Computed example of a mutant assay.
Amino acid sequence: MRLKSFHAKTMAEAMRLVRKTLGDDAIIVATREEEGGGVRVTAAVEDDDLLVAQERLRQPAAAPADPEEPEIDVSEVVAEVLQRHGVPAALAEQLVDAAAGLDTDDPCLALGAALDQFYTFNPLPDGRGRVKPLVLVGPPGSGKTLIAAKLAARAVFKKRSVGVITTDTVRAGGVDQLAAFTRLMKLKLATVEDPDALAGAFEVNRGTDLVLVDTAGRNPFDREDMNDLKALLAAGEAEPVLVLPAGLDALEAADMAQSFRAIGVRRMLVTRLDMARRLGSLLATASRARLAFCDASVSSKVAEGLTPLNPLAFARMMMPPAEEKKAPKPAPKKLATKTKAVSSPSSRTIP
């Protein structure tokens, strides 16, 4: 047996020296306080144990193991995101169940897959080949005139022929605002006031790749307003597209959308995404009114154009990159949510 004394300022420091030099098997024989300050500890260790401790000291210290990252509970992350965006509880529960069925640890991909199951995404044409005229409809102030300018600019940039028509002759400055945009793009703007005039404008633009119609804002809860709009849409074979701003109350927006669906709207274009932080109302609206998402406007500048929407793009808007990899606090028990196999999102979900 070997004896060795250690001197240190504190007992804790002395004990650390004992363990470091003699190992964990050392036995404390005596301790005392020194007159000049500090403590002295005498420890003993068997010869074999001392050799083991000395060999351990000569070996390089092993690098500390990387801490294991907590496993991400995809269902919990998706549920938190939907709650933060104000998605109604019943709809959120359905989306969480769908996300849980996808065998992935990427919450954004799981949310995108859930959106792909519950919603239709059908972006608007850019003028590549002739399509039905697009009639932009919606409540006052939703941004229809700006969207008409953005759609026209996108088609012009792709060297497509564009015809622009406005029926917004009531709002002060409505025609002037769109005229300013069309002049910059060297496009002619046709102004019409009734269904017969609109039919004539459609005939004039019969050979045009893309025809856009900007309409006056309509109160979706006013029967006369909606009847006038319905008569306008009957002037020719055209597709009405609902332009709706983000950030509205979910139930209010859904009621508005249902009124416009009753007159033939099947696609919804979202505006003011740059001013909205909660997108739950859009999901509730598309679900209740059974509308497809098409494009989105994230800026009030015409030059910045529109963003075609797809499930994964929408999921990324709801779940910024900084939060995609954020793991929730570890739960005591892992939820058994992967009970069914679901195919990954289709190719159209990839931007």
Rank of each mutant, 00 (worst) to 15 (best):
Thr182Phe: 00
Leu91Lys: 03
His85Gln: 02
Val77Tyr: 01
Thr120Tyr: 09
Phe181Glu: 05
Gln83Leu: 11
Pro330Phe: 12
Pro345Thr: 04
Leu282Arg: 01
Ala327His: 02
Ala254Asp: 13
Val39His: 00
Ala238Met: 14
Thr339Lys: 13
Leu134Glu: 04
Thr349Asp: 07
Ala92Arg: 15
Glu46Ala: 09
Ala246Phe: 05
Ser259Ala: 15
Asp48Gln: 04
Ala30Pro: 08
Ala238His: 14
Gly138Trp: 06
Thr120Met: 12
Ala53Leu: 09
Pro332Met: 04
Ala172Asn: 08
Arg19Ser: 13
Val41Ser: 03
Gly264Ala: 13
Leu273Ala: 03
Leu282Tyr: 04
Met268Cys: 11
Val213Phe: 07
Met318Ser: 00
Asp196Trp: 07
Leu102Thr: 04
Val270Phe: 02
Pro195Thr: 09
Met275Gly: 03
Ala257Pro: 09
Asp73Gly: 10
Thr104Glu: 01
Pro308Tyr: 06
Leu210Glu: 06
Phe293Leu: 03
Ala327Thr: 03
Leu198Met: 04
Gly236Tyr: 11
Leu178Gly: 07
Ile72Ala: 06
Leu269Gly: 07
Arg58His: 06
Asp126Trp: 03
Arg277Cys: 08
Ala148Val: 05
Val175Arg: 10
Ala63Glu: 14
Lys334Trp: 11
Met11His: 04
Gly200Tyr: 13
Thr307Asn: 05
Asp103Met: 15
Gly141Ile: 05
Arg206Asn: 04
Val41Glu: 02
Asp176Lys: 11
Met185Ser: 00
Leu291Glu: 11
Leu212Trp: 10
Lys20His: 14
Val77Thr: 12
Met318Ala: 08
Arg272Trp: 05
Arg277Ser: 14
Arg2Phe: 13
Asp209Glu: 13
Arg272Met: 14
Glu252Leu: 11
Met256Pro: 03
Ser344Phe: 15
Ser297Pro: 11
Glu237His: 07
Gly86Tyr: 11
Ala62Trp: 01
Arg267Lys: 15
Leu151His: 00
Leu124Asp: 00
Arg316Ala: 05
Leu187Gly: 14
Leu178His: 00
Phe314Asp: 00
Arg160Ala: 09
Ala336Pro: 01
Lys20Glu: 15
Ala336Cys: 10
Leu124Gly: 06
Gly264His: 06
Leu124Cys: 08
Gly36Cys: 05
Gly264Gln: 02
Lys230Met: 11
Pro245Ala: 12
Arg16Gly: 02
Glu69Asn: 08
Phe6Cys: 02
Ile263Leu: 10
Ala8Tyr: 08
Ile27Glu: 10
Ala216Gln: 10
His7Met: 07
Leu102Met: 07
Pro67Ile: 15
Leu283Glu: 08
